[in-house]
Amino acid sequence: MKKRAGLGTVILAIENLLLTAMVLAALALISWDIVIRYFFPSKLADWTTEVIIYLVVSAMLLSGWSLVRANMHVRAELIVERFRPGVRHWIEVIIVSIGVLYCSAVAWYGKAMVQFAASLGINSASSLHFPVWVFYLSVPVSFALMASAYLIRLLNLLHMTHQGRHRSPRASAPSKDDAAKLRG
């Protein structure tokens, strides 16, 4: 257990660095745009808005899987929390399985979408002529990562069942510690 937590922390640190680099780059582009438009409007580039969108949107999509790992995707628990821990455990198994299936499906068709855009050779309308499939790639990558995170959670839940720990009240609420970890 100790070793896995360590690995999780390293992954999180790397992810934080990556997200920060993307967001700060977008922020730099916005500032650049404002300054240039005010002082040297003729030097204005036509591709900044587009790149800002690519950076910010892919940063958000890529962070989806750590939301799965920490069970931080928004949910309404007011009804399910009235159930017995054993029942809640099996409901959770079903939900997490659906997560695996849904995210895999979106990743699969997302891959098809990327290939389709690449085969048409669609480029952005700006002078950058950015190949849009690169941006589209963030969808299948995001959902494939989420699918794998759901799969790991599913295996953990089944492992608990195997050990007979699934009826303990704590077992059905594995989220709190993980969520705290993410918040730092």
């Binding site: 934080n16 939301l67 918040r183």
Partner: peptide, 19 residues
């Protein structure tokens, strides 16, 4: 502290954007 704060902000927003 920057990476941790930015990472947290992005994830918070993402949980809404996915919806």
């Amino acid at each position: 502290d920057l990476p941790e704060i930015v990472g947290h902000s992005v994830r918070t927003t993402a949980s809404i954007i996915f919806i």
